[in-house]
Design a protein around this nucleic acid. Structure first.
Lengths: 112, 112
DNA sequence: TCCATATTTCAATGATATTTGAATTATTGA
DNA sequence: TCAATAATTCAAATATCATTGAAATATGGA
């Protein structure tokens, strides 16, 4: 993972609303959540939510797919794990560090 | 670790200059680096560096100590580990996908 | 003491981020 | 088709962040 990508991913998570969104999606698992449901769960206004989801998408922290009238968002576990990998290697190097989930959390589909 | 603290820590690392500073300090290990040395290594101007070091300090990602004319900065590994702990917990904890957590780093240093 | 070095602070500027509400696009069902 | 629902886009306002250079603080050595 390049540092530019890492900074983008970190910045995506380094914000109250977006961390809340991402956590909700992680909890929801591979099934994901519709945008409106995320709005309900987090109390973020739709237009603001759209803005943040776009940020998270751009950072490839979440994926989305249209389902009828709904847009379903899912946490992108592979990016999350790559980020964790980078942080563990580069920011924990040569020091005692905690166990990390290596591949784990595989999503059903991988839109690329 | 509270989410407010997490956001602060993530925001501290979510910036080119600060990620570079932090990585340099991680590489330097417990001995740390003087501010001027960090400036040399990263090419960040002193006043800008001070600003970023303050951000990192405020997020408790680095610690500092006066040593004569120099101020020595060191990476704060405990905060980093706490951050990784939070992120892995939220990545793999209590969600539908069965987590398979394995220790990513042994006690010995591995060449990367 | 005086001067050079190391670092921080400050104010000003420019650049990004965030939120809001209104307007827009797209889909479903009657 | 029309009306209702789901979500996004847009522009404007506000807030926060990052960089710069000059000035200030502090330490060590001649």
């Amino acid at each position: 993972m390049e540092t530019k990508t890492v900074v983008t991913a970190l910045a995506a998570l380094a914000q109250d609303s977006r961390l809340a969104i991402f956590r909700a999606l992680v909890q929801a698992g591979p099934a994901g959540l519709a945008a409106g449901r995320i709005s309900e769960l987090t109390g973020i206004a739709p237009s603001s939510l759209s803005f943040h989801l776009k940020e998270l998408s751009h950072a490839e922290m979440v994926s989305s797919q249209q389902a009828g009238r709904f847009v379903i968002y899912t946490a992108n576990f592979s990016t999350m794990n790559a980020l964790l990998g980078f942080l563990t290697e580069n920011c924990c190097g040569g020091n005692p560090c905690s166990p990390v989930c290596t591949p784990a959390c595989s999503t059903e589909k991988e839109p690329s």
